[in-house]
Amino acid sequence: MSKLPIRLTVNGDSHEVSVEPRKLLSDVLREDLRLTGTHVGCEHGVCGACTVLVDGAPTRACLIFAIQMEGREITTVEGLTPAEGLSPLQQALHEEHGLQCGFCTPGIVTTFEAYLRENPDPTEADIREVLAGNLCRCTGYQNIVRAIGKAAKAMREGATT
């Protein structure tokens, strides 16, 4: 079965790539578009490292075929990063030491960029429940939870000023 040309919109840019229908979105992002910030940790939808946004909703890139994504807007961690410096969420993760090996981090950034847009003022329990979809083996989650709470606050205050 041969490759087919498909058009993907990623981080606002349109790309034409030629891929087999079976190629996972995670692999197309990483190999064909060289957007290697999307990490692959399990390829069965549990670890959450490959989470990207599809039309703004968090989605496991390892559980979707790139060919399904024509006409959708895909956002990766690269697309959520400002040209200079860090986003409020990234900045809070830095300040609170909310990452160690960093492999799970992009999936956490994408998930919570989406979640905090929907829920700007989450409780710690809310944060933990959402974060439970992203496995981290290094941190014990405590600093990630604190960083997300801090980012939410910063974003709320940023929004009102």
Binding site: V77, L86, Q90, L93, L99, V109
Partner: peptide, 16 residues
């Protein structure tokens, strides 16, 4: 001191 490597890892610019 917050970590140096965070800048690349948080931006999706680490190299694994």
């Amino acid at each position: 001191i917050p970590r140096k490597e965070d800048a690349r890892l948080l931006r999706g610019k680490g190299t694994y």
